[in-house]
Design a protein around this nucleic acid. Structure first.
Length: 943
DNA sequence: CAGTGAGCGAGCTTCCGCTTGACTT
């Protein structure tokens, strides 16, 4: 709790210029920080937090103020035609908080904006000033560490807002909005709805996909060598072990090929002069070396020295928590948040490895107390900035306070204890001495019965002073790798010493494809590429998991086929945007803007409308790419992934991935890792029983009738035998001659498992010609909306499916004599009746519609929202929904008071031919319309 | 991913970065 404003204001420790004794309102970003700082500032200051950003671009239509609703750019929240003026709204969950800040400000004489000293922090400060509209002096207060001295110094050395830095942030924000909100809809249209693209997530997805591509292109190689265990007792070794393992490294002076000598194609790299041993060669050599005498050829000793690791920042904490505590990035951050809020650690979202002076002292004191002065370097260690675009608004992640509590002293337990312990150890170790020791490489030589000179190598490492390793050893992503404190002792040996081979065996190995990313290694990769920020690393993983771009297999991140399709689309049509350098270049530009060496507007114009880049190349703007160029994106093409060396294509459909070979299709399990889809696996999938059920043969045609489950539910069809082709006929060419099989959906009364041949034959007899009317055939059949009669271009629905088989010509004539029925049934009775709408005076009722329950006054309809229940909704709430609906929609001139509410759910796909922006009806576009069903009708676009 | 003729209460999905609770399941 901040000090009560009433108690402050009297001769506090602050001296804020001419105002004299008054109260300053200090606003920081985080409540926990506010609490700490309030303690350091004492009287005269009221410290509150903004809880992050208070304003942002509107997220969705509901947040857009009515006056901007009709604007063509309202969807973006950025007036792209008006100098990219952003539209800011106070986040819904912040409205109450902003009000509170305003109230606090009313009692203050000065406003100190003490948000983080980085791009986002500066912007938060600016938004606060814009939104709070203070009439008291406003100053910017900044600090990089939370210690009493630093805070008091900061309060007395304020500065003005840096509007250039704010401009850089705003540019970043607008770019991300344009990228995300313009490119995502392209994916909705071309791949499937609800997908997303963005500067960060799309590159993250691409990294995972590219790694999988490498794995798919990888060819393993097998290679062999010899493993020996030598006995050095004859060498007179007195200390250390008597035996040691060694590996064959060369024969007759030529090095034996090892894993690193092979390319990803499984061949020896061109620049390697090595001998590749296969199994037979290795076994033969082993036999010829049995019983041979060996001697030490050389002993090479080198000093070993290892410096401690830098204190934690967000990414390294996530990596180590993953390796050692098996926590996901998200879990790590949740646990760290609790530690932070309870005052155990400093802020956990940081890109800095810097420790404050008091933290260094605390660490050094702890070293002295726990390990003794021998482990303490003379001077404090300083860690250089590790991350290129680091903004260093905070310290490293370390135990909080000016003296550290040992884990036991904290009283913590469970994951919080373990994470604290990790942070504590790492921090203490970072102020300890180097580990030192010696590494030794011994070469052993022997001659085979065939006269071959075989050389073995053994290496050892001895740590003579553990230094920081006593406190902390970093984990490894490779479980097979040795950790830093691992020692390998060798017997004491000298040149010419004889040794005896105790055991000598051929050993086979094979090269392995690059490992998949884990959460931790992907985060590491993103940080190295300057993509994402400490506050977002964990959520980036969350986003690509949520979208179905990746899934987890153990700890590995496996890309889905969907991710392959999306990345393929982006690479081919938005190459610039998924370029790995894109963010790095963006950061450079933002730095220029922040320094006042560049302006935001030309930059945004070029990005959105196109123009010459810094190298003089003409760049196509984003607007054109997602507009006029949209028709160039062929959805079928971008969702097709040919299986190399085959005529099989994997396609990503709306219902998941499937394989297609000349029209023969088979589903691919969703959780099949792409690198496991080999030709053999594909054949296996094709060979699998598809779940179809053979019902028997049609007595008239002899064709087999099968029942299948399809996109629109269960149906029956017939198998058309492959036409016997004369020589020269190829499979591809025979396609055209194919007879279309008859198909028919099952009736509602039928079931895939129980449908009989008789049922099927009856279904396949459709459409049934009922007779002739007006010189045209009248047919009865089943369709998208159920059974109907068709006469030329005219049609009428039938009431029951059975009527398809029984309706007579007379009945048909009577049906056609009726006008087209609007709706198939009488109006469904309302689910509930409510009172009168105060706005229209009409009675309100709740009805069940195609999109779920809605309330209507007979004129305006409004869907019930999440949380509204048909049973419990009140008149007030219903009137509110109707009012909102009226406010939102431009009044429709459609005739009101429709009374039909068809109970049937609409088909999954609509075939509305939508008006799209482009004029030419290309094949690509037609496919699009068909595939997505309902492209957005952006009719406002004009040329 | 079988092929097919209505007209209907549509509106929304989505970005990246700052930050926490207050909600419901």
């Amino acid at each position: 709790m901040p000090p009560k404003k009433g108690s402050a204001g009297k001769n506090g420790s602050k001296d804020s210029g001419s105002q004299g004794a008054g109260t300053a309102l200090v606003i920081v970003e985080s409540p926990a920080k506010a609490k700490t700082i309030a303690g350091y500032l004492g009287r005269g200051y009221v410290v509150e937090s903004s809880i992050g950003h208070i304003r942002d671009l509107p997220t969705k239509a509901a947040e857009i103020p009515a006056k901007y609703k009709g604007q063509p750019w309202a969807r973006l929240g950025v007036d792209v035609d008006g100098d990219f003026e952003p539209l800011y709204v106070v986040n819904t969950d912040k409205k109450a908080h902003v009000k509170k800040l305003k109230e606090l400000m009313a009692d203050a004489d000065e406003l100190l904006l003490a948000t983080d000293e980085d791009r986002e922090g500066e912007a938060i400060a600016w938004h606060l000033r814009e939104e709070l509209k203070p009439r008291i002096p406003v100053r910017r207060m900044v600090f990089n560490e939370i210690t009493k001295d630093a805070i008091q110094h900061a309060a007395n050395n304020t500065r003005d807002l840096n509007t250039r830095l704010v401009s850089a942030q705003e540019t970043r924000r607008i770019l991300d909005r344009l990228y995300g909100y313009e490119v995502s809809p392209v994916l909705w249209k071309k791949v499937m709805p609800k997908l997303s693209a963005g500067r960060v997530q799309s590159v993250a997805t691409r990294l995972v996909v590219e790694r999988e591509r490498e794995r798919m292109a990888f060819t393993s190689a097998e290679y062999w060598d010899l493993k020996a265990v030598f006995d050095a007792t004859e060498a007179g070794a007195s200390d250390g072990p008597a035996t040691f393992p060694a590996t064959l490294v060369s024969v007759d002076g030529k090095r034996i090929a090892a894993g690193r000598d092979f390319s990803s194609q499984g061949t020896i790299r061109a620049d390697r002069d090595v001998r590749h041993l296969d199994e037979a060669a290795a076994r033969g050599l082993a036999e010829r070396l049995a019983g041979a005498g060996f001697a030490v050829r050389s002993v090479e000793r080198k000093p070993y020295r290892r410096s401690p690791y830098a204190p934690f920042r967000t990414t390294t904490l996530q990596q180590e928590a993953s390796r050692k505590l098996n926590l996901s990035a998200k879990q790590t951050m949740q646990v760290a948040q609790r530690l932070y809020e309870n005052g155990h650690i400093t802020y956990m979202r940081t890109d800095s490895t810097t420790l404050s002076d008091s933290a260094v002292n605390a660490a050094r004191n702890q070293v002295r107390r726990l390990y003794g002065g021998d482990y303490l370097p003379d001077k404090p260690r300083v860690y250089a900035k590790k991350v290129k675009n680091a903004q260093e608004a905070h310290e490293a992640i370390r135990p909080a306070g000016e003296s550290f509590r040992t884990p036991a002293e904290t009283g913590l337990s469970g994951p919080e204890f373990r994470l604290y312990e990790l942070i504590w150890k790492r921090t203490v170790a970072s102020q300890m001495k180097d580990a030192v020791g010696e590494s030794v490489t011994v070469r052993i030589e022997g001659t085979s019965t065939g006269g071959e000179v075989a050389e073995f190598s053994a290496s050892g490492k001895v740590i003579t002073f553990h230094g920081f390793l006593k406190a902390y050893v970093e984990g490894s992503d490779d479980p097979a790798a040795d950790l830093d404190d691992r020692e390998r002792r060798l017997p004491a040996m000298a040149e010419e010493d004889p040794v005896k081979a105790q055991n000598l065996e051929a050993e086979g190995h094979s090269t392995r494809p690059p490992a998949r990313y884990t959460e931790a290694t992907l985060v590491k990769e993103l940080e190295e590429r300057e993509i994402g920020r400490p506050s977002t690393y964990a959520s980036i993983i969350g986003t690509i998991l949520d979208r179905g771009y990746v899934f987890k297999k153990g700890t590995a991140l496996v890309p889905s086929f969907l991710a392959f399709a999306v990345v393929q689309l982006l690479e081919r049509h938005f190459g610039n945007l998924v370029d790995y350098e894109f963010t790095a270049r963006l950061e450079d530009s933002l730095d220029d803007i922040a320094r006042g060496e560049a302006e935001s507007l030309p930059w945004l114009r070029r990005f959105y409308f196109g123009g010459q880049d810094s190298d003089g190349n003409q760049e196509t703007g984003l607007k054109e790419l997602v507009g006029d160029h949209l028709s160039e994106i062929d959805p079928k093409e971008v969702s097709s992934l040919p299986l190399p060396g085959t005529d099989i294509v994997l396609r990503v459909g709306r219902y998941g991935p499937y394989l297609d070979r000349d029209g023969v299709r088979v589903n691919v399990p969703e959780d099949l890792a792409p690198d496991e889809l080999t030709e053999a696996k594909a054949e296996e999938l094709f060979a699998q029983p598809s779940g179809d059920r053979e019902l028997g043969a049609d007595p008239e045609t002899g064709r087999t009738i099968v029942a299948k489950s399809g996109r629109f539910g269960p149906y029956v069809t017939e198998v058309i035998p492959e036409p016997e082709e004369a020589e020269g006929g190829t499979r591809g060419k025979s396609k055209k001659a194919k007879v279309k099989p008859r198909t028919s959906s099952l009736l509602k009364s039928m079931d895939l498992d129980t449908v009989t041949l008789e049922d099927a034959l009856r279904l396949l007899s459709l459409p049934r010609v009922v007779g002739q009317l007006d010189g045209e055939d009248v047919t009865a059949q089943n369709g998208r909306f159920g059974p109907y009669l068709k006469k030329g271009t005219d049609s009428r629905s039938l009431e029951t499916e059975e009527q398809m088989f029984t309706v007579t010509l007379e009945e048909a004539q009577a049906i056609f004599a009726q006008p087209k029925q609007r709706g198939r049934r009488a109006a469904a009775p309302p689910l509930r009746e409510l009172g009168e709408d105060p706005a229209s005076g009409a009675k309100m009722v709740v009805k069940d519609g195609r999109f779920g329950p809605y309330v209507t006054d007979g004129d305006v309809n409004a869907s019930l929202r999440k949380g509204d229940e048909v049973e419990s909704i009140t008149d007030e709430r219903a009137a509110e929904l109707l009012a909102e609906r009226r406010a939102k929609a431009p009044a429709k001139k459609k005739a009101p008071a429709k009374k039909k509410a068809p109970a049937k759910k609409p088909a999954a796909k609509k075939s509305t031919t939508a008006t799209t922006a482009t004029k030419k009806a290309t094949t690509a576009r037609r496919t699009t319309a068909k595939k997505t069903g309902e492209p957005r009708t952006d009719a406002k676009k004009s040329d």
